[in-house]
Write a protein that binds this DNA or RNA. Structure first.
Lengths: 247, 247
DNA sequence: CGTGGTGTTGAAGGAAATCAAGCCCGGTGG
DNA sequence: CCACCGGGCTTGATTTCCTTCAACACCACG
């Protein structure tokens, strides 16, 4: 992000900034909700299904995921969380987690003082609107995901996911080169789009054959995003939806 | 619902009451947000994908659905909306709808004054918590739906949906007999669980053969809910999750 | 009395799961 | 240093589930 005041380098602020202008005072206020930083190793869980919720957090760097394990051992990944994404707001409300959240790469996060955040929102409706916006957007992503898993052909759905993740990375200020690289194993991708690991692998092969992506050991790199968009039938209004920011 | 103060008969109040006690004053306050009643015929849309959002509403009676149409003409139903369910809160935030909402049966609804609601929440945190709770719960339902569509065998997923809908009806005070009856066509069910109409029909047949459901022309009636729960591998903690109500 | 939404059936083809190996590579420990 | 191991990836063969296509019966409705 160019020309941002310094305090807005805090990821939640960066994210909200991408939605609408927030000034230095707002950014500072957000920053004041940060209690401490924490760290998770790849594979470690932040919450597990059925556990009591820990405090709310914001991801500072690295990749995490919301997921659910089924009795037969399979796993559905509900969403990926990157820099600026928040989790655990429901802690104020729900007694127990209805899904697990785990680290994919090494993750740095900030713990938030949710009482203070709530207070802040009460006194600064504009911030509240922006926060609500980001929650609404996450729900929109979830809905789109459901549509994809339910109705889209698997290849299209895979392409859609890859484009979405690159797009989301750029939106929180990650540079275009880095944003092309998605640190996901093939199992993770398969579990996200709801197909078997083997089928997921074969789908990736066809994308690779057409030069749309390359794959490293534990990552997928987007080589031809426009091509992927075509396969995905990407709708530019998705994620682009702008907030009504004045009030 | 037995022994409720009169004002709490307003559906949103009934719904929140099911989550935690709300008193007559709270209920009256909620009621004061109602602007007017409206009505939709079966098949009519409340919002269509891409449209500007109309005001927020609460369903008073009847069935509606959130859904998305794809370019190939197919449809994914995201969620069903019944008495007490709200829609269009995102109107405050999002410029355009990212999904359509349509009436399945004839629907009565109340339009809400969202500015007033926001104001109310600001002054009555307890109400805010309850409202947030209901939003969080809807998101939980959406996540569960995604898990089902992605990972559960279609028959299990169908059974799960039927049980969930009956359960949700009872929770908003609909009597057990009525709650067993789900006014859904087979196409609607199929579109919700992400299978073709024909396959959906065959799944219903197997449920019928085992005496778990009967079907009228445009409805499914649950005959053996415990049996369905077994097939669905129903988890009793789902939807039962209780809010942390004191603060 | 047609017409269209709804439900039902059969047959055939396709998409994806499952089963079963085997490879590559990085890390660990003997 | 090398052997071994395990996580990630790849491939082929087989089976299962689900879609598609094509009819047709059945009300409910105008």
């Amino acid at each position: 992000m160019h020309g941002l005041p310094n305090a807005t380098q805090e990821p939640l602020a960066v994210k909200l900034h991408a939605l609408g202008r927030i000034d230095e005072r707002d950014a500072a206020a957000l920053q004041s909700c940060v209690l401490a930083e924490g760290h998770l190793e790849p594979g470690a869980d932040f919450v597990r299904f059925g556990d009591a919720y820990p405090a709310a957090i914001v991801i500072l760097s690295g990749w995490a995921m919301r997921y659910r394990e089924l009795s037969d051992g399979s796993r559905q990944i509900l969403n990926f969380l990157i820099r600026g994404d928040a989790a655990g707001f429901a802690a104020t409300i729900l007694a127990r987690a209805d899904h697990s959240i785990g680290a994919i790469t090494s993750v740095r996060y900030a713990r938030l003082d949710s009482a203070r955040l709530l207070d802040l929102v009460g006194h600064n409706p504009r911030l509240g609107v922006l926060l609500f916006w980001s929650v609404a957007l996450e729900e929109a992503v979830l809905r789109e995901h459901l549509v994809g898993v339910g109705k889209r052909p698997a290849l299209q759905q895979l392409a859609h996911l890859l484009v979405e993740l690159a797009e989301r990375q750029r939106r929180v200020g990650i540079d275009a080169q880095t944003a092309r690289c998605l640190p996901l194993t093939q199992v993770a991708l398969a579990d996200a789009i709801g197909v078997s690991e083997i089928h997921g692998n074969r789908l990736l092969q066809t994308l690779r054959r057409d030069g749309l992506v390359t794959t490293n050991r534990r990552a997928v790199v987007i080589e031809d995003e426009d091509g992927l968009r075509r396969i995905a039938r990407w709708d530019d209004t998705y994620l682009h939806r702008d907030a009504r920011l004045c009030r």
